[in-house]
Design a binder for these strands. Sequence first.
DNA 1: CTCATGCCAATACACTGTATTTCTTCATTA
DNA 2: TAATGAAGAAATACAGTGTATTGGCATGAG
Lengths: 235, 235
Amino acid sequence: MTVWDRPEPPIRPVPLDRERIVAAAIALADEGGLGAVSLRKVAARLNAGPMRLYGYISTKEELFDLMVDEAQAEILPDEQPGDWREALRVLAHRTRRTALRHEWLADLLGGRPTLGPNGLAVTEATLAALDGLADVDTVMRAVETVSAYFTGAIRREIANLRAERATGLSKRDWQRASGPHVTRMLATGRFPALAKAVYDGTDVDAETSFATGLDWVLDAVAAKLKSGDAGSAVD
Amino acid sequence: MTVWDRPEPPIRPVPLDRERIVAAAIALADEGGLGAVSLRKVAARLNAGPMRLYGYISTKEELFDLMVDEAQAEILPDEQPGDWREALRVLAHRTRRTALRHEWLADLLGGRPTLGPNGLAVTEATLAALDGLADVDTVMRAVETVSAYFTGAIRREIANLRAERATGLSKRDWQRASGPHVTRMLATGRFPALAKAVYDGTDVDAETSFATGLDWVLDAVAAKLKSGDAGSAVD
DNA sequence: CTCATGCCAATACACTGTATTTCTTCATTA
DNA sequence: TAATGAAGAAATACAGTGTATTGGCATGAG
């Protein structure tokens, strides 16, 4: 590796902006998880020194916030279906798909309020879906409930996914026979209902399970919308 | 601080076990959050060198797993109510209270499968509450849905709590006027539904909101139990 | 041409999780 | 009783982290 092989270092520092920084961080996280995101590595990927980043963010947490907001752009559908139920369903499923594309999102989802432009847009879309179908408070409660459900469900799905990957076993095999610890615990007889669930339950794929639970929750919302629309008559 | 003030160092190394280690870690986390838990600090609190911990755990992640399991012991009620609905409600509320006592739990909840003895016991209790009221698969779906809801809700609640603490503003004041960023965003008119929710919505305390959403989800479960109990007739 | 200003890079610090090496202490055996 | 072995604790070491501080250098104005 002589001098001639090495390219001359750039005369002027490479231009930087938040967009590039966030993109680099996301790339790192997509490849190696959140743990693979370090300010040094992000900067290196942009041919910059670590300290340059502090002109654009003032803490690593802020970088994470920007990453989340960027990911939330992928959640917004091109156009909102008119049917509120369909609209909420789509938003939930798109969130799930986004988290499956960017698994690190599961570690961040719900961890801090999302106040970025895209985060607000997602909230807006969710609220808009129910706007006018009931009084404001009922709508808020509905939105909270639905999103609590799907963030929780997504987090668990990805946690299981990782566990499966780590052990090389499907959740099923792993609980049933090959997971020595779980098998031993179930054999003690102290967890009869759990044992029954593990051995007698048919396992459904994650998407179906997600969709089923979501439908239940939406059913509940539907029921409340009917009884809680006092506000719409007043306006 | 002369030699005479200082106690002699212990001749024999202080005895250690997982229980003590986990207790020390939990104490640290209770005081300063998960970030305050480092193997060095945990060990120091036990008058031991950091490396001694590796006889009891083989990675920091494992320590977290043990902490979660220990916290889950606080979730289990002394006795289970007979009514399935009441049983699930109690489990959810106890989980919430535990997370409020140990806020770090919110960072870990749902992040990994909980396979410790107490984690399994919690799952068992949840499944047991619904055992026999519907076929196994319906019961599993119900348990998944309910716990997805409350883990998601708890996580968000604690995220908001932290944000309030950090800014010194109640969520309300903060959205309404004093949070310059949010105010500015709402003023753009791009988030009409959100603005309406913020300005016209009455704010309820976190517990009520939690309880309300939970009731909705339980309503949904109740509906499905009625229609999905094919299994109980077969056995 | 000189000087001031703003930015970038380098250095520095305190701390992390964990691998490896060194030392101490006790039980066992000769 | 002395020597030897094993075990387990301690110390050291390493590569990495987020971020504060310092130093230099290129570009603008006067």
